[in-house]
Amino acid sequence: MLIDTPSARLLLQRGQTSRLSGAAHAHLASAAGTLWITIDHDRRDIVLEPGQGFDVDSAEDVLVCALGGPAVLDLQPRMAALAAA
């Protein structure tokens, strides 16, 4: 699936994954549920609980997976996230 928009909200079912290409400098946040995030060629594993966010600091692809149940991922440019805070 190609999503060509600066902001998006994705509903992921338990165990469903989504690969985000071109997510460099994006802000990822959990609007609901628990999300597992990993970045290609990065040793970190990031887990977001509802209300938590993470700024992507790499140009590599990002893989997002819903853990334990459905989850909602909010994706927006980092600058938009900073302005809203």
Results as ranks from 00 to 15, higher is better:
Gly53Asp: 12
Gly53Val: 12
Leu10Trp: 05
Asp42Gly: 00
Arg78Ser: 14
Leu63Asn: 09
Gly68Thr: 05
Thr38Cys: 10
Ala83Phe: 04
Arg78Lys: 12
Val56Thr: 15
Leu2Trp: 05
Gly68Pro: 05
Arg19Gln: 00
Ala24Trp: 07
Ala23Asp: 03
Gln76Val: 04
Arg9Ile: 13
Leu12Tyr: 01
Leu73Ile: 12
Ala84Asp: 09
Ile39Met: 14
Val62Tyr: 08
Thr17Phe: 07
Leu35Trp: 00
Leu67Cys: 02
Thr34Met: 03
Thr38Asp: 02
Ile3Ser: 09
Leu10Thr: 06
Gln13Ala: 15
Ser21Trp: 00
Val62Ser: 13
Gln13Leu: 15
Gly33Met: 02
Glu60Pro: 08
Leu73Arg: 05
Cys65Asp: 06
Ala66Leu: 07
Leu11Gln: 05
Thr38Ser: 10
Met79Asn: 15
Val72Gly: 11
Ile39Pro: 00
His25Ala: 11
Glu49Cys: 08
Asp61Pro: 01
Gly53Ala: 06
Glu60Leu: 04
Ala31Arg: 07
Asp40Met: 06
Arg44Asn: 11
Leu12Gln: 03
Val72Arg: 07
His41Glu: 13
Pro70Thr: 08
His41Val: 02
Leu28Ala: 05
Gly33Cys: 01
Leu67Phe: 09
Arg78Asp: 08
Val62Pro: 02
Arg9Tyr: 12
Ser7Met: 13
Gln76Lys: 11
Thr5Cys: 13
Pro6Ala: 01
Asp4Gly: 09
Asp45Gly: 14
Gly51Ala: 06
Cys65Met: 11
Gln16Trp: 04
Gly22Thr: 11
Val72Lys: 08
Ala80Asp: 03
Pro77Asn: 00
Asp45Leu: 09
Leu35Met: 13
Asp74Leu: 08
Asp74Pro: 00
Met1Tyr: 03
Thr34Val: 08
Ile46Ala: 06
Thr17Val: 09
Pro6Leu: 10
Ala24Val: 02
Ile39His: 05
Val47Cys: 14
Ala66Gly: 07
